[in-house]
Design a binder for these strands. Structure first.
Lengths: 109, 109
DNA sequence: GTCAAACTACGAAGACCTTCGTACAAAGGA
DNA sequence: TCCTTTGTACGAAGGTCTTCGTAGTTTGAC
């Protein structure tokens, strides 16, 4: 049997515009910040205010932009940030965005 | 006579998602990086590979997201980065993105 | 073998984005 | 005043994005 696999861009294929676009949606930003704090997580561990199919869509956008890595583990699909790749390509970007997100959230409360 | 004026969000209205979205287009990224190096510039000083109306559109997106400030000066319209506001809201974001853009461009050559 | 859990694939609707051309306006100089 | 420069407004076409529901697949537990 063939294990289910998922396409990921490799490091050299990751484009800044795509990463920024992936991060420009509230739901996806929420996912990224959750993963930054939790490490590897299943899709369902993150409580997004959208349907399951929409959730799948957002995870796919993040994966195809090179922001997260996804692997199947049993019935679950685990996601994690591609920290090493992103830090190597765009030093500081991820941390800056995560901090900005937290700041904005704190200010909005 | 009424001077022509342009709407800008004030600092408290600037949203991270909107800023990231504004930055996720190649033409707009080019504008931002140009302004970072040049200070205030007219729209036509930046040589975008698009028509004038499209150019107007991109400048408007940047302005409405709070990334740039625009003022009329004679027949020209001058644009500049809202550095202070962005640095106060999202420390490091602008610099990180600009550096990432330059890195990516150097790697693509 | 059967069942539940966790996702996916597909198709569709509606909104939004990018692009353009054409026609127009505002300011300043000859 | 007339012309040039610089940019805008409008409308349209074509594409992409986000969202969803429904029906299906894969895996592991019983």
């Amino acid at each position: 049997m063939t294990p289910r696999t998922l396409d990921h861009p490799d490091r050299s294929e990751i484009r800044l515009e795509d990463v920024l676009h992936a991060l420009s949606d509230p739901a996806r930003l929420q996912v990224v910040c959750y993963l930054a704090g939790s490490g590897e997580s299943s899709c369902s561990a993150i409580d997004l205010a959208v349907s399951k199919s929409t959730s799948t869509h957002h995870f796919r956008v993040l994966r195809e932009a090179g922001v997260i890595r996804q692997v199947y583990r049993g019935t679950a699909k685990m996601s994690s940030l591609r920290r090493e790749d992103l830090d190597a390509l765009f030093p500081g970007l991820l941390d800056t965005v995560i901090r900005a997100y937290d700041t904005q959230r704190a200010a909005t409360l």
